[in-house]
């Protein structure tokens, strides 16, 4: 008997955000800075939502932030998460400003708090590394 292994949904490592994923594989967090208005953003689009400029540069961020908000999921929506239930999910406000979604690893869900300081850690999957977070002491 074989058990079906279902992969978690993953972003594509190619496309305009390729430098983000490449740096992540080396454990570094890159953000985008708009060269026109200087706003920082995570690589969600090639166009700056603040000023609509397409002119941007990558820079290395601290990887530090705080929990902006969190939830603990009890319902199964996707078969790849069956082993994880109940699992936490968070939005982290990075020190540089932008928000990044993820999960906090290495912590009891009941210990999560808004404002808790965290740092990015990268977890390797088949062809992409994914940013997650752990509490800093």
């Amino acid at each position: 008997m074989t058990e079906e292994i279902v992969d978690k949904p993953l972003p594509s490592p190619s496309g305009f955000a390729e430098p983000f994923w490449e740096a992540g594989a080396e454990g570094r967090l890159l953000l985008i800075r708009c060269k026109s208005c200087n706003e920082s953003r995570v690589p969600s689009s090639e166009v700056c939502p603040n000023c609509l400029s397409v002119d941007f540069e990558w820079y290395e961020a601290s990887g530090l932030g705080v929990i902006y908000t969190y939830g603990v999921m009890h319902r199964l929506y996707h078969p790849a998460f069956e082993q994880d239930l109940p699992y936490n999910l968070v939005v982290v406000e990075l020190q540089e400003g932008p928000h990044l979604p993820g999960n906090i690893i290495g912590i009891e869900n009941d210990a999560l708090r808004v404002g808790m300081p965290v740092q990015v850690v990268w977890q390797k999957y088949s062809d992409i590394s994914i940013p997650r977070f752990q509490a800093t002491t």
């Binding site: 978690k8 972003p11 594509s12 190619s14 983000f20 994880d84």
Partner: peptide, 28 residues
């Protein structure tokens, strides 16, 4: 279909449907 950029990270983190968004808003 694997999304490009960090928007795909919502699903990777297990963020599904409106329930998740409203839970995060209520928690805030």
């Amino acid at each position: 279909i694997r999304p490009t950029g960090v928007n795909g990270l919502f699903s990777t983190a297990g963020y599904f449907g409106a329930n998740t968004g409203y839970a995060l808003a209520a928690r805030r």
